[in-house]
Simulated assay, not measured.
Amino acid sequence: MNKNGRSLREFKSLPFPDISLINMCRNTLIMDELRYDRESLKNEHLSLYSGLNIEQKVVYTAILEAVYSDYGRFFFVYGSGGTGKTYLWRTVIARLRSEGKIVLAVASSGIAALLLPGGRTAHSRFKLRESSCCDINQGTQLAELICKSSLIIWDEAPMAHRNAFEALDGSLRDILRFHAPNSTNKSFGGKTVALGGDFRQILPVVPQGGREDIVATSISDSTLWHQCKVYKLTINMRLRDPTMDSNAIQ
């Protein structure tokens, strides 16, 4: 019809394709995130959810409420090794992906990223350049993926420089301002973001820097921290059940 200068819009009785769906199908990043086996994830979620303790369930409920309300919240899950941060992330990820939602799971280090289902390093996923800016342009596949995502999980966050989070915050506000009202006035453009880690472990590396210099580069010293809801995990699941997979309860 296009070759003959005609269009489906001329025929009111014929359905017209949704251009946004066609564009989404062309986006390989979005298709990769929607390719998970939902039935398998439903069963995995039921199994994981039954193992959550009281503290984990509080965080689990808060994150899901923020995602479903689409209001956008900023969380930090603080807990030492063995308190089940990774187990919590896996449960949330399984729940949302089983419902066809997109979850971007990243970590500050490659080893931590391997423990997250479909995990990537934060620098790789968000194209961070020396922790000062994100090389994400409007209209790109990555920008469309971020717009379609329901939740961003960033594990081992204390290892990253605060500039990385501020760069991501600025990029998300810029990308989402054409898709969501008041996104420029919300942290991370109104996306729900959940960070996790332990400030008693590895902090950002500051060459020849002292204690004050290191603390000043941490996310806790950023202006974003005042908008963050902090949850603490104190129950050590590894000590309660030594037979559990240590990778599953980080």
Rank of each mutant, 00 (worst) to 15 (best):
1 M>I: 15
3 K>S: 14
3 K>L: 15
3 K>Q: 14
12 K>Y: 15
14 L>V: 11
17 P>W: 03
22 I>Y: 03
25 C>H: 13
27 N>G: 00
29 L>N: 01
32 D>N: 15
33 E>I: 05
34 L>I: 12
41 L>C: 10
49 Y>L: 14
51 G>V: 06
55 E>M: 06
57 K>Q: 12
59 V>S: 09
59 V>M: 09
67 V>A: 09
67 V>F: 03
69 S>V: 08
70 D>H: 13
70 D>K: 15
77 V>P: 02
78 Y>T: 04
81 G>Y: 01
86 T>M: 01
88 L>H: 06
95 R>V: 11
95 R>A: 11
96 L>F: 07
99 E>Q: 15
104 L>V: 00
104 L>F: 06
108 S>H: 05
115 L>K: 10
120 R>G: 05
122 A>P: 00
124 S>Y: 01
124 S>D: 01
125 R>G: 01
127 K>L: 03
129 R>V: 14
131 S>Q: 12
135 D>A: 05
138 Q>L: 08
141 Q>L: 05
141 Q>T: 10
141 Q>H: 10
143 A>K: 00
145 L>D: 07
145 L>A: 07
147 C>K: 12
154 W>K: 00
154 W>I: 05
155 D>N: 04
158 P>R: 13
159 M>R: 10
162 R>N: 08
166 E>M: 02
172 L>N: 04
173 R>G: 01
178 F>P: 02
188 F>I: 04
189 G>N: 02
190 G>Y: 00
197 G>M: 07
197 G>D: 06
198 D>H: 06
201 Q>N: 09
201 Q>D: 06
202 I>P: 10
202 I>F: 12
207 P>T: 13
210 G>D: 14
211 R>N: 14
214 I>N: 15
218 S>M: 15
220 S>Q: 13
221 D>I: 05
222 S>T: 06
223 T>L: 12
223 T>W: 12
225 W>F: 05
227 Q>H: 12
228 C>N: 00
229 K>F: 08
229 K>P: 11
231 Y>L: 11
231 Y>F: 15
232 K>V: 14
235 I>Q: 06
237 M>V: 08
237 M>T: 00
240 R>A: 10
240 R>M: 10
248 A>Q: 11
248 A>D: 13
249 I>D: 02
